[in-house]
């Protein structure tokens, strides 16, 4: 399938739908990242209502602009990962680390334990923190954060 032929849009309001060229239509489409950690923003798989793959797009930027907007909106809904923009405070006490962070979804307090397992270094600068409930907080580039945030991260991780 050619990504440029895929028309993705919401219809009805909360359901992402897709038509391929003039001939096919999928009433329910779920976008999922095939390898969100190693290949962020690449390899977008589109699944049908049963969860079977319709197609995988190596570069979602090649989607028509309106489709890309709709897909991004659905991905934002499906991936409740928060991107950390600033570490306001972080402290380890008695085996638990308490974090207060500003994210792209607003401010959040969370607590992590056993950072050896729950702080995953996806690259030397890319970190995924998983809190005690399984919520995900991502730092895509720790060097892009402010100095204070970097100090907190260096001290704890």
């Amino acid at each position: 399938m050619n990504a440029a032929d895929l028309q993705l849009f919401y219809h009805p309001k909360d359901r992402l739908r897709m038509t391929v060229g003039e001939d096919r239509s999928y009433p329910t489409v779920k976008p999922v990242w095939a390898a969100p950690l190693s290949h962020p923003e690449k390899y977008l798989s589109l699944l049908d209502g049963k969860g079977d793959e319709i197609t995988t797009i190596p570069d979602p930027a090649s989607l028509p602009a309106a489709s890309k907007v709709a897909v991004d909106a659905e991905l934002y809904r499906r991936y409740l990962t928060a991107d950390i923009a600033q570490v306001i405070h972080a402290k380890t006490e008695f085996g638990a680390t308490y974090w207060t962070v500003d994210t792209n979804r607003g401010r959040r307090d969370f607590v992590t334990q056993n950072l050896q397992e729950n702080a995953q270094w996806l690259s030397p600068v890319h970190i995924m923190l998983i809190d005690v409930d399984g919520n995900r907080f991502e730092i895509t580039d720790k060097t892009a954060l402010d100095t204070k945030s970097q100090e907190f991260i260096a001290a704890i991780l």
Binding site: R77, R78, Y79, L80, T81, A82, G134, N135, R136
Partner: peptide, 10 residues
């Protein structure tokens, strides 16, 4: 139903 999402649900 609870639709499982990444890091939560709907």
């Amino acid at each position: 139903r609870n639709e499982p999402l990444v890091g939560g649900g709907r």
